[in-house]
Design a protein around this nucleic acid. Structure first.
Lengths: 245, 245
DNA sequence: CAGTGGTCTAGACCACTGG
DNA sequence: CAGTGGTCTAGACCACTGG
Protein backbone atom coordinates (compact mmCIF):
# COMPACT_ATOMS: atom_id res chain seq x y z
CA UNK A 1 0.00 0.00 0.00
CA UNK A 2 2.68 2.46 1.02
CA UNK A 3 5.05 3.43 -1.75
CA UNK A 4 8.65 4.46 -1.13
CA UNK A 5 7.94 7.91 -2.56
CA UNK A 6 5.44 10.35 -1.18
CA UNK A 7 3.75 11.35 -4.36
CA UNK A 8 0.04 12.08 -4.14
CA UNK A 9 -2.28 9.14 -4.39
CA UNK A 10 -5.36 10.65 -6.00
CA UNK A 11 -7.23 7.54 -5.09
CA UNK A 12 -10.76 8.37 -6.08
CA UNK A 13 -11.15 12.09 -6.60
CA UNK A 14 -9.86 14.62 -9.08
CA UNK A 15 -9.45 14.49 -12.85
CA UNK A 16 -9.45 11.11 -14.55
CA UNK A 17 -5.97 11.60 -16.03
CA UNK A 18 -4.48 12.08 -12.55
CA UNK A 19 -6.30 9.07 -11.14
CA UNK A 20 -5.03 6.95 -14.01
CA UNK A 21 -1.48 8.29 -13.58
CA UNK A 22 -1.63 7.56 -9.84
CA UNK A 23 -2.90 4.05 -10.46
CA UNK A 24 -0.13 3.26 -12.93
CA UNK A 25 2.51 4.91 -10.72
CA UNK A 26 1.44 2.73 -7.83
CA UNK A 27 1.50 -0.45 -9.89
CA UNK A 28 4.97 0.42 -11.16
CA UNK A 29 6.08 1.15 -7.59
CA UNK A 30 4.80 -2.24 -6.50
CA UNK A 31 6.81 -3.96 -9.20
CA UNK A 32 3.89 -5.03 -11.36
CA UNK A 33 5.81 -3.37 -14.18
CA UNK A 34 9.62 -3.33 -13.95
CA UNK A 35 12.17 -1.03 -15.69
CA UNK A 36 12.30 -1.82 -19.39
CA UNK A 37 8.91 -3.48 -19.40
CA UNK A 38 5.97 -2.30 -21.48
CA UNK A 39 2.87 -0.70 -20.06
CA UNK A 40 -0.34 -1.70 -21.84
CA UNK A 41 -0.86 0.12 -25.17
CA UNK A 42 -2.76 3.38 -24.96
CA UNK A 43 -5.82 1.98 -26.67
CA UNK A 44 -5.93 -0.82 -24.13
CA UNK A 45 -5.65 1.64 -21.21
CA UNK A 46 -8.63 3.48 -22.68
CA UNK A 47 -10.67 0.32 -22.31
CA UNK A 48 -9.35 -0.52 -18.84
CA UNK A 49 -10.09 2.91 -17.44
CA UNK A 50 -13.08 3.75 -19.57
CA UNK A 51 -11.73 7.00 -21.00
CA UNK A 52 -10.94 8.38 -24.42
CA UNK A 53 -7.45 8.14 -25.83
CA UNK A 54 -6.62 11.83 -25.25
CA UNK A 55 -7.29 11.33 -21.55
CA UNK A 56 -5.21 8.14 -21.33
CA UNK A 57 -2.39 9.98 -23.12
CA UNK A 58 -2.68 12.87 -20.69
CA UNK A 59 -2.06 10.40 -17.84
CA UNK A 60 0.97 8.89 -19.56
CA UNK A 61 2.36 12.37 -20.20
CA UNK A 62 2.29 12.99 -16.45
CA UNK A 63 4.34 9.84 -15.81
CA UNK A 64 6.68 10.67 -18.67
CA UNK A 65 7.43 14.07 -17.13
CA UNK A 66 8.18 12.39 -13.82
CA UNK A 67 10.75 10.25 -15.57
CA UNK A 68 8.79 7.13 -14.60
CA UNK A 69 8.07 6.00 -18.16
CA UNK A 70 9.57 6.63 -21.56
CA UNK A 71 7.60 6.52 -24.77
CA UNK A 72 8.70 5.10 -28.06
CA UNK A 73 6.63 5.07 -31.20
CA UNK A 74 7.62 1.56 -32.08
CA UNK A 75 8.24 -0.08 -28.73
CA UNK A 76 5.38 1.54 -26.88
CA UNK A 77 5.45 2.98 -23.35
CA UNK A 78 8.20 1.52 -21.17
CA UNK A 79 9.00 1.78 -17.47
CA UNK A 80 12.17 3.92 -17.08
CA UNK A 81 15.45 3.13 -15.32
CA UNK A 82 16.34 5.18 -12.18
CA UNK A 83 18.29 8.44 -12.62
CA UNK A 84 22.09 8.69 -12.56
CA UNK A 85 23.44 10.80 -9.68
CA UNK A 86 26.13 13.15 -10.93
CA UNK A 87 28.05 16.05 -9.47
CA UNK A 88 29.14 19.14 -11.31
CA UNK A 89 32.49 18.16 -12.80
CA UNK A 90 34.02 15.82 -15.32
CA UNK A 91 31.32 13.66 -16.87
CA UNK A 92 33.83 10.85 -17.37
CA UNK A 93 35.07 10.91 -13.80
CA UNK A 94 31.60 11.19 -12.36
CA UNK A 95 30.34 8.18 -14.27
CA UNK A 96 33.34 6.14 -13.25
CA UNK A 97 32.67 7.12 -9.65
CA UNK A 98 29.20 5.60 -9.78
CA UNK A 99 30.41 2.54 -11.61
CA UNK A 100 29.21 3.30 -15.11
CA UNK A 101 31.06 3.27 -18.38
CA UNK A 102 31.33 6.80 -19.83
CA UNK A 103 31.85 7.55 -23.48
CA UNK A 104 31.87 10.54 -25.79
CA UNK A 105 30.89 10.71 -29.43
CA UNK A 106 32.36 13.69 -31.23
CA UNK A 107 29.57 15.23 -33.29
CA UNK A 108 31.60 18.20 -34.50
CA UNK A 109 34.92 19.91 -33.85
CA UNK A 110 35.82 23.21 -35.45
CA UNK A 111 37.40 26.59 -35.06
CA UNK A 112 34.93 29.46 -34.95
CA UNK A 113 34.50 33.06 -33.94
CA UNK A 114 32.73 33.09 -30.58
CA UNK A 115 29.20 34.30 -30.03
CA UNK A 116 28.86 37.12 -27.51
CA UNK A 117 28.05 34.86 -24.56
CA UNK A 118 31.00 32.58 -25.37
CA UNK A 119 33.49 35.45 -25.71
CA UNK A 120 32.19 36.98 -22.48
CA UNK A 121 32.38 33.64 -20.73
CA UNK A 122 35.97 33.01 -21.79
CA UNK A 123 36.92 36.64 -21.24
CA UNK A 124 38.19 37.24 -24.77
CA UNK A 125 37.46 39.52 -27.69
CA UNK A 126 34.87 38.40 -30.27
CA UNK A 127 37.64 38.44 -32.90
CA UNK A 128 39.68 35.85 -31.07
CA UNK A 129 39.07 32.37 -32.44
CA UNK A 130 37.85 29.50 -30.31
CA UNK A 131 37.64 25.75 -30.66
CA UNK A 132 34.10 24.40 -30.42
CA UNK A 133 33.35 20.76 -29.67
CA UNK A 134 29.94 19.12 -29.69
CA UNK A 135 29.90 15.76 -27.99
CA UNK A 136 27.22 13.24 -27.16
CA UNK A 137 27.80 11.74 -23.73
CA UNK A 138 26.76 8.21 -22.93
CA UNK A 139 26.49 6.10 -19.80
CA UNK A 140 26.81 2.41 -20.60
CA UNK A 141 25.82 3.29 -24.18
CA UNK A 142 22.72 5.17 -23.14
CA UNK A 143 22.68 8.78 -24.34
CA UNK A 144 22.28 11.12 -21.38
CA UNK A 145 23.76 14.48 -22.37
CA UNK A 146 24.84 16.78 -25.16
CA UNK A 147 27.91 18.83 -24.29
CA UNK A 148 29.08 21.85 -26.26
CA UNK A 149 32.44 23.18 -25.10
CA UNK A 150 34.54 26.17 -26.12
CA UNK A 151 38.28 26.77 -25.62
CA UNK A 152 40.60 29.61 -26.49
CA UNK A 153 42.49 28.50 -29.55
CA UNK A 154 45.72 30.13 -28.35
CA UNK A 155 45.72 28.11 -25.14
CA UNK A 156 45.23 24.70 -26.75
CA UNK A 157 47.29 24.54 -29.97
CA UNK A 158 46.65 21.35 -31.90
CA UNK A 159 43.62 20.54 -29.75
CA UNK A 160 41.66 19.05 -32.63
CA UNK A 161 44.41 16.45 -33.12
CA UNK A 162 44.07 15.15 -29.59
CA UNK A 163 41.89 12.23 -28.58
CA UNK A 164 38.59 13.96 -27.98
CA UNK A 165 36.52 10.91 -27.07
CA UNK A 166 37.39 10.80 -23.38
CA UNK A 167 37.74 13.28 -20.55
CA UNK A 168 38.65 16.71 -21.94
CA UNK A 169 39.80 17.78 -18.50
CA UNK A 170 42.36 14.97 -18.64
CA UNK A 171 43.57 16.27 -22.01
CA UNK A 172 43.84 19.80 -20.63
CA UNK A 173 45.70 18.52 -17.60
CA UNK A 174 48.05 16.06 -19.22
CA UNK A 175 48.68 17.52 -22.67
CA UNK A 176 48.60 21.21 -21.82
CA UNK A 177 49.68 21.15 -18.18
CA UNK A 178 46.63 23.05 -17.02
CA UNK A 179 45.62 23.09 -13.40
CA UNK A 180 41.83 23.22 -13.36
CA UNK A 181 40.68 24.58 -10.06
CA UNK A 182 37.06 25.61 -10.01
CA UNK A 183 33.82 24.92 -11.81
CA UNK A 184 30.84 27.25 -11.97
CA UNK A 185 27.48 26.77 -13.60
CA UNK A 186 24.04 28.21 -13.99
CA UNK A 187 21.34 25.59 -14.05
CA UNK A 188 17.89 25.91 -15.52
CA UNK A 189 15.09 23.52 -16.24
CA UNK A 190 14.05 23.86 -19.86
CA UNK A 191 12.19 21.84 -22.42
CA UNK A 192 14.57 20.68 -25.11
CA UNK A 193 14.77 22.50 -28.40
CA UNK A 194 14.31 20.53 -31.55
CA UNK A 195 17.93 19.98 -32.66
CA UNK A 196 19.11 19.00 -29.19
CA UNK A 197 16.18 16.63 -28.75
CA UNK A 198 17.13 15.00 -32.03
CA UNK A 199 20.72 14.43 -30.89
CA UNK A 200 19.59 13.06 -27.55
CA UNK A 201 16.93 10.96 -29.27
CA UNK A 202 14.10 12.23 -27.12
CA UNK A 203 10.95 14.05 -28.05
CA UNK A 204 11.17 17.76 -28.60
CA UNK A 205 10.02 19.55 -25.49
CA UNK A 206 11.30 16.86 -23.12
CA UNK A 207 12.53 18.40 -19.91
CA UNK A 208 16.29 18.98 -19.62
CA UNK A 209 18.79 20.14 -17.06
CA UNK A 210 20.43 22.99 -18.92
CA UNK A 211 23.85 24.08 -17.65
CA UNK A 212 25.86 27.11 -18.71
CA UNK A 213 29.21 26.19 -17.24
CA UNK A 214 32.69 27.64 -16.87
CA UNK A 215 35.92 26.05 -15.70
CA UNK A 216 38.76 28.07 -14.18
CA UNK A 217 42.41 27.31 -13.52
CA UNK A 218 44.45 28.16 -10.45
CA UNK A 219 45.10 31.70 -11.63
CA UNK A 220 41.37 32.32 -12.04
CA UNK A 221 41.51 32.30 -15.81
CA UNK A 222 38.49 30.81 -17.59
CA UNK A 223 39.70 27.78 -19.53
CA UNK A 224 36.43 26.30 -20.68
CA UNK A 225 32.98 27.62 -21.49
CA UNK A 226 30.31 24.98 -21.92
CA UNK A 227 26.65 24.43 -22.53
CA UNK A 228 25.47 21.06 -21.24
CA UNK A 229 22.05 19.61 -21.84
CA UNK A 230 21.18 16.62 -19.67
CA UNK A 231 18.10 14.47 -19.93
CA UNK A 232 16.20 15.54 -16.81
CA UNK A 233 14.47 12.18 -16.65
CA UNK A 234 17.80 10.36 -16.53
CA UNK A 235 20.04 12.51 -14.36
CA UNK A 236 19.97 14.04 -10.90
CA UNK A 237 22.62 16.49 -9.79
CA UNK A 238 24.47 16.40 -6.48
CA UNK A 239 25.59 19.81 -5.24
CA UNK A 240 27.93 20.81 -2.43
CA UNK A 241 28.87 24.24 -1.21
CA UNK A 242 30.85 25.80 1.58
CA UNK A 243 28.92 28.33 3.58
CA UNK A 244 30.17 31.87 3.83
CA UNK A 245 30.11 33.02 7.41
CA UNK B 1 14.48 38.42 -36.79
CA UNK B 2 17.20 37.07 -34.53
CA UNK B 3 16.12 36.35 -31.00
CA UNK B 4 18.45 36.52 -28.01
CA UNK B 5 17.90 32.85 -27.35
CA UNK B 6 18.69 30.04 -29.74
CA UNK B 7 15.49 28.14 -29.44
CA UNK B 8 14.24 26.40 -32.57
CA UNK B 9 12.29 28.50 -34.98
CA UNK B 10 9.98 25.94 -36.58
CA UNK B 11 9.11 28.52 -39.16
CA UNK B 12 6.92 26.61 -41.55
CA UNK B 13 7.32 22.89 -41.00
CA UNK B 14 6.45 20.46 -38.27
CA UNK B 15 3.39 20.07 -36.10
CA UNK B 16 0.99 22.97 -35.83
CA UNK B 17 1.35 23.25 -32.06
CA UNK B 18 5.11 23.79 -32.38
CA UNK B 19 4.70 26.37 -35.13
CA UNK B 20 2.21 28.24 -33.00
CA UNK B 21 4.48 28.03 -29.95
CA UNK B 22 7.42 29.30 -32.02
CA UNK B 23 5.38 32.16 -33.39
CA UNK B 24 4.22 33.28 -29.94
CA UNK B 25 7.71 32.82 -28.47
CA UNK B 26 9.14 35.06 -31.15
CA UNK B 27 6.52 37.75 -30.67
CA UNK B 28 7.16 37.69 -26.91
CA UNK B 29 10.92 37.90 -27.56
CA UNK B 30 10.35 40.93 -29.76
CA UNK B 31 8.42 42.66 -27.03
CA UNK B 32 5.01 42.51 -28.66
CA UNK B 33 3.89 41.02 -25.37
CA UNK B 34 5.73 42.08 -22.20
CA UNK B 35 5.98 40.34 -18.79
CA UNK B 36 2.65 40.51 -17.00
CA UNK B 37 0.72 41.11 -20.18
CA UNK B 38 -2.01 38.84 -21.48
CA UNK B 39 -1.68 36.70 -24.55
CA UNK B 40 -4.87 36.46 -26.61
CA UNK B 41 -7.43 34.03 -25.14
CA UNK B 42 -7.18 30.45 -26.32
CA UNK B 43 -10.36 30.65 -28.35
CA UNK B 44 -9.02 33.68 -30.14
CA UNK B 45 -5.71 31.91 -30.91
CA UNK B 46 -7.75 29.10 -32.46
CA UNK B 47 -9.19 31.57 -34.91
CA UNK B 48 -5.87 33.32 -35.60
CA UNK B 49 -4.04 30.10 -36.34
CA UNK B 50 -6.94 28.10 -37.72
CA UNK B 51 -6.69 25.18 -35.34
CA UNK B 52 -8.88 23.54 -32.75
CA UNK B 53 -8.65 24.50 -29.14
CA UNK B 54 -6.79 21.34 -28.09
CA UNK B 55 -4.04 22.24 -30.53
CA UNK B 56 -3.83 25.87 -29.40
CA UNK B 57 -3.64 24.62 -25.81
CA UNK B 58 -0.88 22.20 -26.75
CA UNK B 59 1.16 25.17 -28.02
CA UNK B 60 0.57 27.18 -24.84
CA UNK B 61 1.60 24.16 -22.75
CA UNK B 62 4.95 24.18 -24.54
CA UNK B 63 5.51 27.83 -23.61
CA UNK B 64 4.30 27.21 -20.08
CA UNK B 65 6.90 24.48 -19.62
CA UNK B 66 9.58 26.84 -20.88
CA UNK B 67 8.60 29.30 -18.17
CA UNK B 68 7.70 31.85 -20.84
CA UNK B 69 4.05 32.11 -19.92
CA UNK B 70 1.94 31.38 -16.88
CA UNK B 71 -1.69 30.40 -17.00
CA UNK B 72 -4.42 31.52 -14.70
CA UNK B 73 -8.02 30.45 -14.95
CA UNK B 74 -9.32 33.92 -14.24
CA UNK B 75 -6.62 36.17 -15.61
CA UNK B 76 -5.84 34.15 -18.72
CA UNK B 77 -2.38 33.39 -20.13
CA UNK B 78 0.27 35.90 -19.10
CA UNK B 79 3.86 36.48 -20.16
CA UNK B 80 6.16 35.41 -17.28
CA UNK B 81 8.86 37.38 -15.44
CA UNK B 82 12.51 36.21 -15.87
CA UNK B 83 13.87 33.60 -13.44
CA UNK B 84 15.61 34.44 -10.16
CA UNK B 85 19.25 33.30 -10.04
CA UNK B 86 19.98 31.64 -6.72
CA UNK B 87 22.86 29.67 -5.29
CA UNK B 88 22.61 26.75 -2.92
CA UNK B 89 22.51 28.37 0.50
CA UNK B 90 20.35 30.58 2.63
CA UNK B 91 17.24 31.60 0.70
CA UNK B 92 17.09 34.87 2.62
CA UNK B 93 20.71 35.77 1.98
CA UNK B 94 20.54 34.77 -1.66
CA UNK B 95 17.51 36.94 -2.33
CA UNK B 96 19.11 39.89 -0.57
CA UNK B 97 22.19 39.39 -2.72
CA UNK B 98 20.16 39.83 -5.91
CA UNK B 99 18.25 42.76 -4.49
CA UNK B 100 14.95 41.11 -3.71
CA UNK B 101 12.92 41.10 -0.52
CA UNK B 102 12.79 37.60 0.98
CA UNK B 103 10.06 36.42 3.32
CA UNK B 104 8.92 33.21 4.93
CA UNK B 105 5.43 32.16 5.91
CA UNK B 106 5.34 29.45 8.53
CA UNK B 107 2.81 26.85 7.40
CA UNK B 108 3.47 24.43 10.22
CA UNK B 109 5.95 23.85 13.04
CA UNK B 110 5.89 20.72 15.14
CA UNK B 111 7.86 18.04 16.90
CA UNK B 112 7.68 14.66 15.21
CA UNK B 113 9.38 11.30 14.96
CA UNK B 114 11.52 11.36 11.82
CA UNK B 115 10.83 9.29 8.72
CA UNK B 116 13.66 6.98 7.69
CA UNK B 117 15.19 9.39 5.19
CA UNK B 118 15.12 12.24 7.72
CA UNK B 119 16.70 10.16 10.50
CA UNK B 120 19.34 8.88 8.09
CA UNK B 121 19.99 12.41 6.85
CA UNK B 122 20.43 13.82 10.34
CA UNK B 123 22.34 10.76 11.49
CA UNK B 124 20.03 9.95 14.40
CA UNK B 125 17.84 7.09 15.56
CA UNK B 126 14.19 6.99 14.43
CA UNK B 127 13.13 7.26 18.08
CA UNK B 128 14.85 10.62 18.49
CA UNK B 129 12.43 13.49 18.05
CA UNK B 130 12.94 16.23 15.50
CA UNK B 131 11.49 19.65 14.83
CA UNK B 132 9.80 19.97 11.45
CA UNK B 133 9.10 23.32 9.81
CA UNK B 134 7.17 23.91 6.62
CA UNK B 135 7.67 27.36 5.20
CA UNK B 136 6.53 29.11 2.07
CA UNK B 137 9.30 31.29 0.66
CA UNK B 138 8.57 34.47 -1.21
CA UNK B 139 10.53 36.90 -3.31
CA UNK B 140 8.95 40.35 -3.26
CA UNK B 141 5.70 38.64 -2.23
CA UNK B 142 5.78 36.16 -5.09
CA UNK B 143 5.75 32.53 -3.94
CA UNK B 144 8.78 30.70 -5.32
CA UNK B 145 9.51 27.79 -3.01
CA UNK B 146 8.22 25.45 -0.34
CA UNK B 147 10.84 24.52 2.23
CA UNK B 148 10.50 21.65 4.69
CA UNK B 149 13.32 21.54 7.24
CA UNK B 150 14.18 19.14 10.04
CA UNK B 151 16.38 19.70 13.11
CA UNK B 152 17.40 17.52 16.03
CA UNK B 153 15.26 18.58 18.95
CA UNK B 154 18.14 18.16 21.41
CA UNK B 155 20.34 20.61 19.52
CA UNK B 156 17.79 23.42 19.29
CA UNK B 157 15.86 23.61 22.58
CA UNK B 158 13.02 26.12 22.41
CA UNK B 159 13.36 26.39 18.66
CA UNK B 160 9.61 26.77 18.10
CA UNK B 161 9.65 29.90 20.26
CA UNK B 162 12.18 31.63 18.04
CA UNK B 163 11.31 33.97 15.20
CA UNK B 164 10.90 31.49 12.35
CA UNK B 165 9.92 33.95 9.63
CA UNK B 166 13.45 34.90 8.57
CA UNK B 167 16.73 33.15 7.92
CA UNK B 168 16.87 29.95 9.95
CA UNK B 169 20.62 29.82 9.48
CA UNK B 170 20.81 33.18 11.26
CA UNK B 171 18.79 31.72 14.15
CA UNK B 172 21.08 28.68 14.30
CA UNK B 173 24.12 30.92 14.24
CA UNK B 174 23.05 33.65 16.63
CA UNK B 175 20.75 31.86 19.08
CA UNK B 176 22.47 28.49 19.23
CA UNK B 177 26.05 29.44 18.39
CA UNK B 178 26.28 27.01 15.51
CA UNK B 179 28.97 27.28 12.89
CA UNK B 180 27.42 26.12 9.64
CA UNK B 181 30.14 25.09 7.31
CA UNK B 182 28.94 23.09 4.33
CA UNK B 183 25.82 22.52 2.29
CA UNK B 184 25.07 19.47 0.21
CA UNK B 185 22.08 18.69 -1.99
CA UNK B 186 20.68 16.30 -4.50
CA UNK B 187 18.73 17.99 -7.24
CA UNK B 188 16.08 16.48 -9.44
CA UNK B 189 13.59 17.83 -11.88
CA UNK B 190 10.14 16.61 -10.99
CA UNK B 191 6.57 17.58 -11.67
CA UNK B 192 4.94 18.88 -8.51
CA UNK B 193 2.71 16.66 -6.46
CA UNK B 194 -0.76 17.89 -5.67
CA UNK B 195 -0.29 19.21 -2.10
CA UNK B 196 2.92 21.06 -2.94
CA UNK B 197 1.37 22.54 -6.06
CA UNK B 198 -1.51 23.82 -3.94
CA UNK B 199 0.86 25.55 -1.51
CA UNK B 200 2.88 27.09 -4.32
CA UNK B 201 -0.32 28.05 -6.11
CA UNK B 202 0.67 26.42 -9.37
CA UNK B 203 -0.98 23.67 -11.31
CA UNK B 204 -0.33 20.11 -10.23
CA UNK B 205 2.35 18.60 -12.43
CA UNK B 206 4.20 21.91 -12.93
CA UNK B 207 7.91 21.34 -13.18
CA UNK B 208 9.93 21.89 -10.01
CA UNK B 209 13.53 21.92 -8.89
CA UNK B 210 13.42 19.39 -6.10
CA UNK B 211 16.29 19.53 -3.60
CA UNK B 212 17.10 17.06 -0.84
CA UNK B 213 19.54 19.11 1.17
CA UNK B 214 21.75 18.78 4.24
CA UNK B 215 23.69 21.39 6.17
CA UNK B 216 26.76 20.53 8.23
CA UNK B 217 28.68 22.39 10.91
CA UNK B 218 32.44 22.69 11.33
CA UNK B 219 32.68 19.31 13.05
CA UNK B 220 30.92 17.62 10.14
CA UNK B 221 27.74 17.04 12.09
CA UNK B 222 24.51 17.30 10.10
CA UNK B 223 22.49 20.17 11.58
CA UNK B 224 19.70 20.47 9.06
CA UNK B 225 17.90 18.12 6.71
CA UNK B 226 15.64 19.79 4.17
CA UNK B 227 13.39 19.17 1.24
CA UNK B 228 13.05 22.23 -0.97
CA UNK B 229 10.67 22.55 -3.86
CA UNK B 230 11.32 25.49 -6.16
CA UNK B 231 9.17 26.62 -9.04
CA UNK B 232 11.33 25.59 -12.00
CA UNK B 233 9.80 28.31 -14.13
CA UNK B 234 10.83 31.01 -11.64
CA UNK B 235 14.26 29.96 -10.42
CA UNK B 236 17.62 29.05 -11.89
CA UNK B 237 20.40 27.67 -9.73
CA UNK B 238 24.01 28.84 -9.76
CA UNK B 239 26.49 26.14 -8.81
CA UNK B 240 30.21 26.34 -8.00
CA UNK B 241 32.59 23.54 -7.21
CA UNK B 242 36.27 23.11 -6.57
CA UNK B 243 37.87 20.51 -8.77
CA UNK B 244 39.60 17.55 -7.22
CA UNK B 245 42.99 17.06 -8.81
C1' DC C 1 -23.85 37.12 -16.65
C1' DA C 2 -19.81 36.56 -19.93
C1' DG C 3 -15.16 35.19 -20.02
C1' DT C 4 -11.34 32.43 -18.63
C1' DG C 5 -8.70 28.15 -18.63
C1' DG C 6 -9.37 22.76 -17.36
C1' DT C 7 -11.08 18.47 -18.71
C1' DC C 8 -12.98 15.22 -21.83
C1' DT C 9 -15.12 12.69 -25.86
C1' DA C 10 -15.08 9.81 -30.04
C1' DG C 11 -13.49 9.70 -33.42
C1' DA C 12 -9.72 10.69 -37.60
C1' DC C 13 -5.32 10.35 -40.17
C1' DC C 14 -0.22 10.28 -39.79
C1' DA C 15 4.70 8.15 -39.73
C1' DC C 16 7.20 4.56 -38.47
C1' DT C 17 8.45 -0.22 -37.55
C1' DG C 18 8.61 -5.16 -37.56
C1' DG C 19 6.81 -9.45 -39.11
C1' DC D 1 0.08 -5.89 -42.86
C1' DA D 2 -1.10 -4.82 -37.92
C1' DG D 3 0.51 -2.25 -34.11
C1' DT D 4 2.59 1.65 -31.93
C1' DG D 5 2.54 6.43 -30.35
C1' DG D 6 1.85 11.53 -32.46
C1' DT D 7 -1.23 14.91 -33.96
C1' DC D 8 -5.64 16.93 -34.64
C1' DT D 9 -10.72 18.06 -34.92
C1' DA D 10 -15.12 20.13 -33.33
C1' DG D 11 -17.35 20.13 -30.34
C1' DA D 12 -19.02 19.51 -24.89
C1' DC D 13 -19.42 20.66 -19.96
C1' DC D 14 -16.91 22.21 -15.77
C1' DA D 15 -15.30 25.60 -11.93
C1' DC D 16 -14.12 29.91 -11.00
C1' DT D 17 -14.08 34.93 -11.16
C1' DG D 18 -15.37 39.65 -11.82
C1' DG D 19 -18.67 42.99 -13.26
Amino acid sequence: MSSSTERGTNGASGPAYLRIAASLRERIGEGEFVPGQNLPPERELCGQFGVSRMTARHALTVLEREGIVVRDVTRGTLVAEPRLELRLGSFSHELERIGRQPSAELLSARQVLPRGAVADGLGIAPQQRVVELRRLRRSDNEIVALETTFYREDLVPGFLDQDLTGSLWDVLNHEYGMRLKRSEAKLQVLPMVSVTAKDLQVREGSECLHLLRRTFDESGRCIEYAEDVYRADRVSLVIERDIES
